[in-house]
Design a protein around this nucleic acid. Structure first.
Length: 834
RNA sequence: GCCCGAGUGACGGAAUGGUAGACGCACGGGACUUAAAAUCCCGAGGAGGCAACUCCGUGCCGGUUCGAGUCCGGCCCCGGGCACCA
């Protein structure tokens, strides 16, 4: 071999070979090989193409997949396109091109880029969520959810993005801003389809104990699900006798009994027995503090206010306050610098404490949310920061009921109960349990588990999505489109801009809207909203197993072969979005017998972002985006692949440094040059090859690609100008997962047998021809004084002898009293002196 | 406010409680060259010293240990997640 390293030529050559050979095709046949299913998040094919961040995201499992192939695995490493969604639609509207055309163009560009860096995806298994053969099954899953009562339509207050003109799920607007465009989300009353993900909250939580996700991911998901345990109970509401007339109108509230509350309220000076006019429920996680309740707070939109309008004497004032609150967007409420409590007392009625029977004032305040718990809270100002702030502002009593070691630490949960009747002296934990038991026994409350996670708002008022396969029949109500009629095709449309009135573009197509009811055959109308982008991505990993299967979501034989994803890598931003949704859908498919694993992914890791050279997140508006095309053209695919992994810790963000690329370029050139100097007479006994192989092997398994590459660089440095054929071959094998083009070429031009992936991974069975010598640090009195050169695995006596024979070291020991010797084999020798 | 993660050379980053700074970049010196680029060799945490060597060094303060970047306690700062969640 006497050729220059020409990456353009080599990379083209091997990419063609791989394509012709279908080198990365997974086999659904049973052939005795172990299987590996590696999954990367399928990209959204935007018009901007892939950026180097995608490259890094894919490169991690690409390396693992290539290594598995060397190790003889049958590898499923697929790629696909999450192609429905707003950016394409917006681009289409702006440029007056159909989203289908935009999508196809973007996909072919993404595909070109993936192939140009030599990613070993199984390109024959591509899935595209916008193809009817795919979304047929997305719709089918929705129909099943509907049939099982897990999809329902409800008119309620939902998150809405004015700029995108769509309803958003909670997961779509974390932090109060629209995920897509950053606009502050507002609350709007809408009729919306929901999926009952809350019904799965507990199982989604429990399932986390059975999977290998990083602790951080599990924590974020647990946090998002937001389980809490406490007591839910009723407060009776009585009319204020002083203000209401004896002939006051009867309450229209259901279940209200006009029965006097037993026992006169001790604080009340009124002589007449107060009339019970209603009740409301509260939820608390601190039932132990119930004796410290000095008022209650309702959310501004709490239904009690409407139902007791007759008794409430300041209804107008309350309505005005509620209107004020509505105007504030969620974003404003979260980010307001001025978070001082506001509220209005409800005049004309009082709540009755269930234990002390005292009448306590009732307030309306926007720090209580209608969407969590019962929309009403018992306020314990001594032991809750928000209640405390409110009580101070409105001059309400603050009753301490938990004594803590530090008197200032009122929120502490390690205190002892006081001023609390039969709870006095108990710990917080004991008192909680006692109170729940007491309330249950006396039938005025019950233990309750609540979750912060909300049901999944599922429809979008846009064109470029899966049509929701539901028919609204005046006689039968909502009826699902029968399976035989799926897919419900997304009709072609020339004007796909959203309606000004927040209506879906599909509602303008008469022929689509008007249909006959699948149940009674009568005239009916179709649902015209489409599904969110998360729908298609919630089950795509299943489709890869049998991408063209027409008989269902996944072919049972293929599922049996691949089952769970062995290793899924993606971004942290999807942990409380896509990852939760897809775990939910998979669990549902498990319940209806489509799949047999309750959890879709055995293991999940996340890559860090590649930041721009300025240390900021890469974005077009900042102008700091690096395109892989430029790097591939200038330095080659292998250099790019190496560099995105060498740049830093794979799981942490790292800034792009164009200067650093040179290191990877030189590395490959030096490898190439060394290949021309193979000589089996070279002594390699100074190189611990076994250790290098073991290190590269284990580093790859732990996403520590930067140190795996560093180990290869060190090994190359140690080999110097000449090395043996065997060692060089093993080096090329280890290089293969990272830089496969040059590795395949070197394997061939250096005359090794066979082809690379079949050649196996490097075997760590080198026989050390010379005994290994190591340097052991010597400490005297805890201070490092030097090192001593000894054979590996020397005994304490041997090392000590070597130290005493070393003049500079033994000089340090002259005239000192050695009290103790600490010897850690192959690590350290430490003399403790007196 | 609550919960995480991190803080190491000019820079990206390495270090099962055992020689801090692997590997790389940038840098300095040298070789090759008419010259430059490329390549190769050498150097390099800081301070002092001709030198051998000495002292100081992983955000700050304290502790445990023969020995701490690593473990513990208390801060500071940065990044992330959740957030009037009852």
């Amino acid at each position: 071999m006497n050729k220059e390293y020409n990456f353009l030529e080599i990379e083209k050559k091997w990419q063609d070979v791989w394509e012709q050979e279908k080198a990365f095709a997974a086999s659904n046949q049973e052939d005795g090989r172990p299987t590996f299913f590696g999954l990367v998040e399928f990209p959204y094919p935007s018009g901007d193409g892939l950026h180097v961040g995608h490259m890094r995201a894919f490169s991690g499992l690409e390396v693992v997949a290539r290594k598995r192939r060397l190790q003889g695995y049958n590898v499923l490493f697929p790629i696909g396109w999450d192609a429905f969604g707003l950016p394409t639609e917006n681009f289409a509207i702006k440029n007056k091109v159909h989203p289908r055309i935009v999508t196809d163009k973007n996909i072919s560009n993404f595909l070109r880029q993936c192939k140009s860096v030599g990613f070993g995806f199984d390109y024959d298994r591509q899935v595209d969520t916008t193809k009817s053969g795919y979304y047929k099954w997305t719709q089918w899953i929705f129909v099943k959810l509907f049939e099982k009562g897990l999809a329902y339509k409800d008119t309620t207050t939902v998150n809405f993005c004015d700029a995108c003109a769509v309803v958003l799920a909670n997961e779509d607007c974390q932090g109060g801003q629209c995920d897509r465009c950053g606009t502050a989300v507002v609350q709007k009353e809408k009729s919306v389809w929901f999926l009952k993900i809350r019904d799965y909250a507990e199982r989604l939580l429990q399932g986390l104990d059975t999977v290998d996700y990083t602790e951080r991911m599990k924590r974020e998901q647990r946090n998002w699900i937001g389980k809490s345990e406490g007591l839910q109970f009723k407060f009776a509401v009585v009319a204020d006798q002083a203000k209401s007339t004896p002939t006051m109108s009867k309450s229209k509230t259901k279940g209200v009994k006009n029965v006097a509350v037993a026992g006169a309220p001790s604080t009340s000076t009124k002589t007449a027995t107060p009339k019970k006019v209603g009740n409301f429920e509260v939820y608390t996680t601190r039932p132990d503090t119930i004796f410290g309740v000095s008022f209650c707070v309702l959310a501004p939109e709490h239904p009690l206010l409407a139902s007791l309008a007759g008794q409430i004497t300041n209804k107008k004032e309350l309505d005005a306050y509620a209107n004020e609150c509505k105007k504030k967007s969620e974003f404003e409420r979260l980010n307001a610098l001025d978070k001082t409590k506001t509220g209005v007392q409800v005049q004309g009625i009082f709540a009755v404490h269930p234990l002390t029977k005292k009448q306590i004032p009732l307030f309306v305040a926007d720090y209580v949310m209608m969407s969590y718990g019962t929309g009403a809270v018992m306020a314990v100002p001594a032991h809750d920061g928000r209640d405390n702030e409110f009580a101070k502002k409105f001059g309400l009593p603050i009753l301490q009921v938990v004594q803590t070691a530090d008197p200032k630490d009122t929120a502490s949960k390690d205190g002892t109960l006081c001023n609390s009747d039969f709870l006095d002296g108990m710990s917080v934990l004991q008192a909680k349990a006692k109170m729940i038991e007491y309330a249950t026994k006396h039938k005025w409350g019950k233990a309750k588990t609540d979750y912060k996670m909300k049901d999944w708002a599922f429809n979008r008022q846009r064109y470029w999505g899966e049509p929701i396969p539901i028919v609204d029949c005046p006689k039968c109500g909502f009826v699902a489109v029968p399976t035989k009629d799926l897919p419900l095709m997304l009709p072609h449309l020339d004007d796909f801009a959203p309606g000004a009135d927040g209506q879906s573009p599909l509602s303008r197509i008469e022929s689509f809207v008007h249909c006959s009811c699948p149940q009674c055959g009568g005239k009916a109308k179709r649902e015209t909203d489409t599904m969110p982008q998360w729908a298609g991505s919630s089950w795509y990993f299943l489709r890869y197993m049998s991408p063209n299967f027409e008989g269902g979501v996944v072919d049972k034989v293929a599922y049996k072969k691949w089952g769970q994803v062995d290793w899924y890598n993606g971004g942290m931003e999807h942990v409380t979005r896509h990852l939760i949704y897809s775990r939910f859908w998979n669990l549902f498919l498990y319940d209806i017998g489509v799949v047999t694993h309750p959890e879709p992914y055995k293991k999940r890791t996340a890559q860090g972002l590649i930041l721009g050279e300025d240390g900021e997140k890469m974005s077009k508006s900042r102008g700091n985006v690096v395109s892989p095309d430029t790097i591939v053209k200038q330095y080659g695919a292998d250099v790019l692949r190496l560099f995105v992994l060498f740049i830093g810790d794979y799981e942490k963000a790292a800034p792009w440094q164009s200067g650093g690329i040179n290191g990877c370029v030189r590395f490959l050139h030096r490898i190439w040059a060394l290949g021309q100097n193979l000589d089996d007479s070279v002594d390699i006994s100074h190189i611990d090859v076994n250790e290098c192989i073991a290190k590269v092997d284990s580093d790859i398994e732990q996403n520590k690609f930067n140190t795996a590459i560093a180990t290869l660089m060190t090994l190359l440095n140690q080999m110097g100008q000449k090395t043996t054929r065997r060692l060089y071959g093993d080096f090329v094998k280890m290089l293969y997962p990272f830089a496969p083009h040059i590795a395949e070429e070197l394997w061939q031009v250096c005359g090794y047998q066979g082809r690379l992936p079949q050649a196996g991974f490097a075997q760590a069975d080198y026989v050390l021809t010379a005994q290994k010598t190591i340097q052991i640090p010597v400490q005297i009195g805890g201070k490092l004084k030097g090192t001593v050169s000894v054979l590996f695995d020397s005994t304490q006596a041997q090392v000590k002898q070597a130290i005493l024979q070393d003049p500079s070291l033994s000089a340090h020991l002259q005239g000192v009293q050695i009290k103790k010797e600490i010897f850690v084999p192959n690590r350290i020798f430490n003399f403790i002196v007196g």
